[in-house]
Amino acid sequence: MLEIRNLHVSIEDKKILNGLNLTVHDGEVAAIMGPNGSGKSTLSYVIAGKPDYDIHDGEILLDGENVLEMDPDARAAAGIFLAFQYPLEIPGVATMTFLKAAMQAQRKARGEEELSTAEFMKRVRDQAGHLGIPQDMLKRGLNVGFSGGEKKRMEILQMALLEPKFCILDETDSGLDIDALKVVSEGVNRLRAKDRSFLVITHYQRLLNYIVPDTVHVMAHGQVVKSGGKELALELEANGYADYKTLAA
């Protein structure tokens, strides 16, 4: 379970999150929607531990443990995964090499045994197959020269291999064609489990037809201003954010 309480965050003296509260239970899929610049990506970065943010107040608890004290790699090992809105390119490092290094690092941090090369290869092949990622692509530098859609699939591949507890998807649907949207959504749905939860950030209700959320939260001005069931997404699609833009100010 992830609990965020009264989170206040700024960057370069600009206040972005203003006392944000949010709880996501185990097995829950929570969607976050909200206007551009409302702080959605900031929230996901702060959960994952990106440096440069000033955290003035509040806490983020993963299964009761305050993650704000932890380095990003420790948070990853504890089960936090962020599928980036803009995945980074890592030139010279073959995707396969990167995947293996990441998996082994997390296993080691958790005190688990190293995965054998055969087992690793098998898992990669299986998951890449599901996501329609060709083997050649795994030999290329991670994300280097990948199309927008390919990068997003690669994020989901990493998520599937790392088997995190808490997954954040930051606009994973943007830049995907219709077929890719289905493939990626199926990838996420396959990972849905009792002890795994998701925070799905999106602008489009369409994604939520594929990844059906348990809860929908509206974010504005760095706060969650309204929460509801999946029907809230449809309402937003129809009416836009006009009502919420003034609400929190």
Binding site: D71, A76, P91, V93, T97, A102, Q158
Partner: peptide, 25 residues
């Protein structure tokens, strides 16, 4: 910094991430 953060988000330490990138280079 963004590349380092990306790698660390996947579980690598800053040193491991640097070593990986340098080795590739």
């Amino acid at each position: 910094e963004d590349q380092l953060f990306y790698c660390m988000q996947r579980g690598l330490s800053a040193e491991e991430a640097t070593a990986l990138i340098v080795n590739g280079f």
